Amino acid sequence: MDSLVVLVLCLSCLLLLSLWRQSSGRGKLPPGPTPLPVIGNILQIGIKDISKSLTNLSKVYGPVFTLYFGLKPIVVLHGYEAVKEALIDLGEEFSGRGIFPLAERANRGFGIVFSNGKKWKEIRRFSLMTLRNFGMGKRSIEDRVQEEARCLVEELRKTKASPCDPTFILGCAPCNVICSIIFHKRFDYKDQQFLNLMEKLNENIKILSSPWIQICNNFSPIIDYFPGTHNKLLKNVAFMKSYILEKVKEHQESMDMNNPQDFIDCFLMKMEKEKHNQPSEFTIESLENTAVDLFGAGTETTSTTLRYALLLLLKHPEVTAKVQEEIERVIGRNRSPCMQDRSHMPYTDAVVHEVQRYIDLLPTSLPHAVTCDIKFRNYLIPKGTTILISLTSVLHDNKEFPNPEMFDPHHFLDEGGNFKKSKYFMPFSAGKRICVGEALAGMELFLFLTSILQNFNLKSLVDPKNLDTTPVVNGFASVPPFYQLCFIPV
């Protein structure tokens, strides 16, 4: 009986604490739906499609509103004006990374994606500088992407125009580009180590996009005490870190300090320079996690976009025909596509942009946080508050993009057929937390897609009208449904 009384008292205290925290903070924060004790607004949000729920709530509470995930307040920004004001106009104040408990377990605050403060700034600055020195957006990395595009075309030829699921092959190409940047090595598509790495990356994007992960991140005790797919994700990350550590040891034994070959060499050189400046942010643990982040951000996002792009091109054969006509006119058949071609191919450029806009790969991006107490639109948001960005509300804005739910390359073309930029184009987020590999991803999408369409016609196994382009999961990332196609050599 005594234990029951204690339990009831504990629960009562928890409920009172929950109510007090919510009521004391709500006077400062933007308005929002009334949260339930302990669980907050979790029942009012469709976990399978958070973005749709945010759109519905914005119609009631406006472009800036507050939700509670458990006891934790989260300020939501919906629509271009609110997102721009926060991420661009007040970029420094909104540059923090929001709480992501599962990532905390995986990387302990290291790396480039989930770190904060001085650690994040130094690692991000170093990573950007190193990638630029190796030619991100310049010639040397373009050579690597072109080489991988040629290998991709050869792998597709091996399908002999038979029906195939493109998931694996389209994942190999961007993964190999990242391998060449980090390890100075590309792998054969049949290499077992490479296959294991690909498998872990593919599993992780599916797990991260599941409703279960949303629950884990908002009720963090689940991570330590409950079984579930989150444990598989943590094991996959541990596998990748151990693999990278092996490569780091190989580099330490063979590195030429006067001739760095890749990202690992550059990081080890930085560690050597910083060894007298303790404590340094440049450690082996930081290198492991930064490399894992580059793999995660640079492989599955690009391969998922490529997979979605081919599905949309199957669905819209008239678009595919126009792209192939432009390829034939500008590039021809006797040389590989290059980035200089893009400025002469406005329709193809528009298609690449429209694919990214339409699929809305990361509907709410990753959570941000404010780095200080900030007054925002007459609300006071306390330091450390998590900020949720609705990228969907920007990419699918119906004023900027008429009929935003329709796939239409003319969203990025003017009346004369010239490519038209849009400030609403934010597939990689915006501001200080914009994806480090934005330029690389854009290069890969253009070169891989043009190389495929230069060499193959795409054949659907069903009537294009019957192809479903609805994402199968739409949590962290929008993942396309399973499909097969035939690559018919031109």
Rank of each mutant, 00 (worst) to 15 (best):
E92L: 08
T320S: 11
G27H: 13
S343T: 14
K121V: 07
N107A: 08
M406G: 10
R26F: 10
L366I: 11
E328R: 15
F183M: 07
R329C: 12
N474R: 13
K241P: 01
F412S: 01
K375Q: 09
R335F: 04
L152Y: 00
S336T: 13
D262F: 01
I284S: 05
P480S: 02
V323D: 01
G70L: 06
K119H: 13
F126W: 12
N259L: 07
D191W: 00
F295G: 01
S336C: 13
L449E: 00
F295D: 00
V83A: 11
K383H: 05
I123Y: 06
K273D: 12
L87S: 06
F295M: 15
Q356H: 08
I222S: 08
Q261N: 10
L71E: 10
P63D: 14
P37V: 05
N378I: 05
V355G: 01
V370H: 00
C13E: 10
F448E: 02
K232C: 05
S365R: 01
E415C: 07
E354L: 01
E415I: 06
S365L: 11
E300W: 15
F401G: 01
L77W: 03
H78F: 09
F65N: 02
I205Y: 04
E81C: 08
D408C: 05
Q484G: 03
S95L: 05
Q192F: 05
T450G: 06
P427H: 00
L9D: 07
N236M: 02
E400L: 09
P221S: 12
Y225G: 07
Q193T: 15
C486R: 14
K432I: 05
D224A: 13
L268M: 06
I213P: 08
F134D: 07
S460R: 03
L36H: 08
F446N: 01
M255L: 15
N258T: 12
E104T: 10
N236I: 03
F69R: 06
W212R: 08
K270Y: 07
D360Y: 04
R157P: 00
T299L: 04
T469L: 12
K247Q: 14
N474H: 11
N398S: 13
I99R: 15
G96D: 14
I39T: 05
V323M: 13
I374Q: 06
L287D: 00
V292G: 05
K52R: 12
C486L: 07
W120Y: 14
T450S: 10
G79S: 09
I264V: 06
R307S: 04
G384S: 05
K121R: 13
L388D: 01
N474Y: 07
V472P: 07
S53F: 06
Q484Y: 04
E122N: 13
G40Q: 02
F428I: 04
I213V: 14
S280Y: 07
F482N: 15
V436M: 15
K160R: 13
Y308D: 00
D341M: 08
F428L: 07
Y225S: 08
G137E: 09
S286R: 06
E285K: 08
K119R: 14
H276R: 10
L449Q: 02
D468E: 10
I264S: 02
K273F: 07
R105M: 11
L43K: 08
Y379M: 08
E203M: 05
L388M: 11
F168I: 05
T364D: 05
F183D: 02
L11F: 13
P166N: 00
K84F: 06
A321P: 05
L380H: 14
P402R: 13
K315T: 08
G475M: 07
I284N: 06
V352C: 13
T229K: 15
Y483D: 01
K273L: 10
I213S: 15
L170R: 00
T302D: 00
A309E: 00
T371R: 09
A350C: 02
R132K: 13
A103F: 15
L131E: 04
F282C: 07
F448G: 00
V38L: 14
M406C: 14
P166K: 01
G111N: 03
Q192T: 12
N107G: 09
M339S: 08
W20G: 12
Y225L: 14
P427Y: 02
K270M: 14
G79V: 01
V145Y: 00
A86E: 03
Q324M: 04
R307K: 05
K52N: 13
K28L: 12
S429M: 08
Q484N: 06
K383S: 08
K432R: 12
I488K: 08
P402G: 10
E253G: 12
L306I: 12
V248N: 03
T470E: 12
T34G: 06
E400F: 07
I331E: 02
F487Q: 00
H78D: 06
P31D: 07
E85A: 09
S460I: 03
N474V: 06
T130G: 08
L311R: 01
G79T: 06
K232T: 12
T305L: 05
I182P: 00
P227I: 11
Q278L: 12
S343E: 11
E203C: 04
S451M: 07
T299A: 08
R335N: 07
S140I: 09
D165L: 00
V237F: 09
P101I: 07
N418Q: 11
S127W: 07
K28S: 13
P221L: 08
I223M: 15
Q324V: 06
P31K: 08
L361R: 08
S451C: 09
C266M: 13
G111F: 03
N236R: 02
E328T: 14
L131H: 05
L311Y: 04
G40V: 02
G431H: 04
L77T: 03
L361H: 08
E148R: 00
V237C: 05
F376T: 06
A369P: 00
E85G: 07
L306N: 00
P489M: 00
F412R: 00
C13S: 14
T469R: 02
E154G: 08
A297P: 03
I207S: 05
N378P: 03
L234E: 11
V75M: 04
K206Q: 10
N455W: 04
L485W: 01
F456H: 01
L380D: 11
L440C: 00
D143P: 05
L128E: 05
C338V: 09
S303E: 02
S390F: 04
E246I: 04
I141K: 00
R342E: 05
I331N: 02
G332C: 06
D89M: 09
L467F: 03
T386I: 08
N217R: 15
K48T: 12
G137C: 11
L11Q: 08
L128F: 09
L447V: 11
L131S: 06
Q193F: 09
E400V: 11
S162V: 11
V479L: 15
L445E: 06
Q252D: 05
Q484M: 07
N218F: 15
S220M: 13
P221F: 13
K273Q: 14
C486Y: 06
L131P: 05
H230T: 10
S393H: 03
T305A: 07
A309C: 10
F295A: 04
G70S: 03
I213Q: 15
K432Y: 07
V237P: 01
T302N: 03
R97C: 04
T469E: 10
W212S: 07
M269F: 10
F226H: 04
P464M: 05
F412P: 00
G25D: 13
N398T: 13
G137P: 09
S286V: 11
I50Q: 11
T304M: 08
K247C: 07
P409T: 02
D191T: 02
P163S: 04
V83C: 13
F65H: 04
T130L: 09
A350V: 02
S451P: 03
E253L: 15
N455Y: 04
P404I: 03
G96E: 14
T66P: 02
S422M: 10
K273V: 08
V330C: 13
K28F: 13
S393N: 05
E285D: 09
T470H: 09
T34K: 13
L311T: 01
S140C: 10
F100R: 06
K119C: 11
I327Y: 01
R342N: 03
M443F: 04
M339C: 07
F226N: 04
Q22M: 14
K322M: 09
D341V: 04
S3L: 13
L233H: 04
P73I: 02
I207P: 00
P367M: 07
V319K: 04
K190N: 14
N116C: 08
I50S: 09
I359N: 06
K185D: 06
T304H: 08
I331V: 11
E288V: 15
I284T: 07
I374A: 07
I387T: 07
L7P: 10
A350T: 01
P481L: 02
N403Q: 11
L67A: 07
R21A: 14
E285G: 05
M136T: 11
D224S: 15
Y308G: 05
S280L: 08
L461D: 10
I74E: 03
G62Q: 02
P37C: 03
L54T: 07
D89P: 09
N378T: 07
H411Y: 02
G442P: 10
G62R: 01
Q356I: 12
I359D: 02
P166L: 01
R125M: 06
G137D: 11
S451L: 03
F100N: 15
Q192M: 08
E199G: 11
P346A: 09
V113L: 15
V76Y: 07
L90C: 15
P404R: 06
D463R: 04
